[in-house]
Design a protein around this nucleic acid. Sequence first.
DNA 1: GCAAAAGTGTTGTGATTACACCCATGC
DNA 2: GCATGGGTGTAATCACAACACTTTTGC
Lengths: 224, 224
Amino acid sequence: MTITPITPADSGIRVAVSTVIFSQRDGRIVLPLVRRTRDPHEGQWALPGGWVDAAENLDATASRTLAETTGLAPSYLEQLYAFGDIGRSPERVVSIVYWALVREDVARAAEQHNVEWFDVSELPELAFDHTQIVDYALWRLRNKVGYSRIAHGFLPSHFTLADLREVYESILGKRLDPANFRRQVENSGTLIPTDDFRTGSHRPARLYRYNHDVELAERGPLPH
Amino acid sequence: MTITPITPADSGIRVAVSTVIFSQRDGRIVLPLVRRTRDPHEGQWALPGGWVDAAENLDATASRTLAETTGLAPSYLEQLYAFGDIGRSPERVVSIVYWALVREDVARAAEQHNVEWFDVSELPELAFDHTQIVDYALWRLRNKVGYSRIAHGFLPSHFTLADLREVYESILGKRLDPANFRRQVENSGTLIPTDDFRTGSHRPARLYRYNHDVELAERGPLPH
DNA sequence: GCAAAAGTGTTGTGATTACACCCATGC
DNA sequence: GCATGGGTGTAATCACAACACTTTTGC
């Protein structure tokens, strides 16, 4: 039996993957952009990404392009949305966009050439529809921080409650009550207190580590 | 200036759109499947869908294939996920999957040939990875019903609180307290009481209509 | 001692739950 | 009348926010 394509394999549609990578730095949310070296939009800043190879899964493409940018594995990676409007590029391109979180220390360790990290509130003009894509990724991030534990994805293995609170505050853009914040996260069962403290200023703060028995976010029946 | 494709236009990857269409019938969630008329998986049941035309937006393709199945416009339509694993089809196919809600009366009015509606708890074996896709769509539906008003998408323009409660109960798979349910939805501001009542058995029940000033679900910065 | 962050205690408020109870209709 | 679903009332509970207060460090 033969397989009969209904459209020719050359359908005029190409498939790309881009990734919105978030990290945290000095209480700000930052993301890496690459400068385009060819048309269209040569010279403009764009999200890191690449074409999907016929023998490579979408997730793998996202991981690969992410590694090529930050040099290391993310602490969280999730598909965001498929953008495929006709006018978003001179040729017809469907972009499967992912979003990722990388820890602050990981991001700092692997700075690359022609990659620059920008504060999300001070982004330059972006190529294609990437401004809209970043807006949507930010919306998802702010939403998801309210009902999951993804904020931990920004932090190194050991951290204080003030560190974690700072992450929440920079994502949500508002101050949180330290006392109530402490109780909320203590009751969530996602943190394991250690016997170590961070000293240096004022009263030492206890260091916590993440309880890896609980997922950063519920993903439903999708394979992880 | 010339555009230089990095991969040839014939990348060996084709782009399709499929849609998981939900409706409600006798307290059960049902969805339409089409029988495949060619290989691969000839004769098996599959989600309605089609190839993306180079001149057609993804949303438009979803609406079109949905119309070809149910014959009418959905009350809710949202992108679900892009499935693109290597092994999911003999050829490399990236499927942008949407999910939709259609009102019970709309679904009943437009029954089509070679389309059959199945109870989601009694699905046959499906082609490709469509079983997994339906599982994920159901998970999203059950989640979203908890924090949005999409359940209204199943109902005709006028309905009783018992109708609405039945929708919630069939989605969530559990009974809800009628008294508390009433207060919750009355306080949500999404319902407008009418002066009409449904009679026929016991005490007549007031008919409500949906307040179209509030969206069925918050979609963030994505264009609707 | 003093400032400041770490950490604890207390109180009020609003949403949710469980359930008792009344109302209006068909039979 | 009586069974049944429509609709109201109410008290207990819980999560959360606001804020006063104590503890422990650096200087």
